[in-house]
Simulated assay, not measured.
Amino acid sequence: MAILEKKIYVGLTEETAIQLVKELAFFPIHAELTAKEIGDGNLNYVFRITDQEGGKSLIIKQALPYAKVVGESWPLTLKRSKIEADALIKHGEFVPLLVPKVYETDEDLAITIMEDLSHLKIARTGLIEGENYPKLARDIGEYIAKTLFYTSDFALHPFEKKRLVAAFSNPELCKITEDLVFTDPFFDIDTNDFEPELQSDVEAIWGNTALQIEAAKIKYSFLTEAEALLHGDLHTGSIFASEEETKVIDPEFAFYGPIGFDLGLFIANLVFQSIVRDGEQKEYILNQIEETWQVFYSVFSELWEKEGVDPFTKVSGYKESFLQKIFNDAVAFTGCELIRRTIGLSHVKDLDGIEDKEIRLAAKRKTLELGTSLILRKSDIQEIKGFISAIKEHTA
């Protein structure tokens, strides 16, 4: 029986992935196809299907019913596959050149068939290897500004906004973020993972009541502020890039949340690079952080002024007040991401890949110090220059 006729979830293999694309007639009937499972994430299978003669290729992404990082003891909803595909399609309405094309989806099989981006490199990998992407900050600043403005109350009729909030309800994956980003790193929780040499640094975080109170406020914002349709996991590992092109992938954590969250996560993952680089290369990354905010501010402001539908968008000073809120939120979310990627369950290769142990530990201590400072000072840092100064202060 054909795979699509069964309508029963079965994990694909390289062989059945080929069968699937043949059923869907993506390739000529006699094409010689090869399949390779290339997924390196924690939640999905990813197959690249290639026509050896024609050169055409595509990607099949299939959600797993559990987290690979833990195993079947951590079950996950397959609905996230539909949410991811729908988020790619919705965001593609506003930034079609910055997301992969979606060709086909099937909710029962939890699959999305999409454009192959293998001519690009995962931005995190390239940055770790010392590459620079001159369009990255500008493209991501535009991506965040447009996708979030156009899915907010400032651009939508209230009925449509509330329909989208319901459609993108994503409680299981939000719970992962709520735990791993905003809760576990601030307490002595078994899922935390760090070198024994950092024990005293970590205990200082666990014992810092003022920090925990601020973290609680930040988590509450994440839980309650349905401002726009977020990507939800916008780090440099969720971006393909080259010198000429940028594509954002993997929005399976998409949901309606605070606008500053996507900004904070992306900026935090540039901050890791500012910590591990020196001299001109460090300054380059700091300039990228500044440019991300400036482009976001400029594009969001222009959309607000030209396409805002809420009458209050015409009130003098409201735009500036709201953008200040986004900035302060982004500072706080940056701090949480820095801490959780250093001592929580899920780390980043930017830090963990440093071979020299003493250099690695020093970099992680700087990251924890900066993260703590950003959370505690989130309301004091009022503009991007002050944010850059805070990074330099703690990572010199």
Results as ranks from 00 to 15, higher is better:
L164D: 04
T209H: 10
S152R: 01
K6W: 03
G55Q: 04
K36M: 09
F159E: 15
F240M: 15
K306R: 15
K385F: 09
E72P: 10
E203A: 13
E307V: 01
T246N: 11
I113S: 05
Y297Q: 13
I176A: 06
I3G: 00
I60F: 03
I29L: 11
S389K: 15
L120K: 10
D190E: 15
T236N: 11
K217Y: 09
Y143A: 03
F261L: 14
E290W: 01
T183M: 13
D350M: 06
S200T: 13
F26V: 02
D106N: 14
G41M: 08
Q199A: 14
Q382W: 10
W74I: 01
I354L: 08
D356F: 02
T112G: 07
V276W: 07
I176M: 05
S118C: 06
T34G: 09
K162N: 14
K306I: 05
I218T: 08
T313Q: 03
Q199Y: 12
I189A: 14
Y318N: 12
E203C: 13
E104C: 11
L24D: 11
T342I: 00
E358S: 15
T313R: 02
C174F: 11
T191F: 09
S81M: 08
I8M: 03
A216W: 08
E23H: 00
L127C: 12
V202S: 00
V181N: 03
F159R: 12
T177M: 06
D329W: 12
T16P: 04
V348D: 01
T372I: 02
S73F: 02
I249K: 00
W304F: 10
L180P: 04
I249H: 08
L180R: 08
A362D: 15
Q62I: 01
K306C: 07
L361P: 01
P96F: 01
K82F: 10
A204Y: 11
K162D: 14
E337M: 11
L229W: 00
L351S: 09
K247H: 02
G92M: 01
Q324H: 08
I289N: 02
E14A: 12
Y318S: 07
F272N: 11
D201V: 07
E115Y: 11
D190Q: 02
L303P: 00
I113D: 03
G11I: 09
T372S: 14
E355G: 05
W293E: 05
L211R: 07
K175I: 05
T151M: 01
A396V: 12
E15D: 14
